[in-house]
Amino acid sequence: MTRLRRRFPARVYEVGDEPDPRFSLANERTFLAWIRTALALTAGGVALEALGLGLQPGLRLAASVVLVVAGTACPLQAWVGWMRTERALRQNRPLPSPMLSLPIGIAVVVVGVLLLLAIAFR
């Protein structure tokens, strides 16, 4: 097979062999799910500040900032996780675990607690 073009990023495609394409497609969908998670967290954080909802302002701002910061972390997880998984697939190695899923899960719990307090102290 002739190599028609170099695929980006070289860090991924320079190693290993072509995996089952269905695994690459599944990896791509996981990447996209992280992107949509990022957008949902960001939209939640912005909506919270935009709508106000009669919540205690300080706690509401804190919850909003935690949401948008988590929304910033998700695209990084999406891209780095996609690269690491694609490399592992090409090298037939065990797949990496998502590094940021626990921190993001904790962030969502923190947001829930902050909002409960913001309702209690409004």
Partner: peptide
Amino acid sequence: LALAAALAGIAVAV
């Protein structure tokens, strides 16, 4: 793009 959207979100929230 998603990262830019999130950074814009931080700016808007603050």
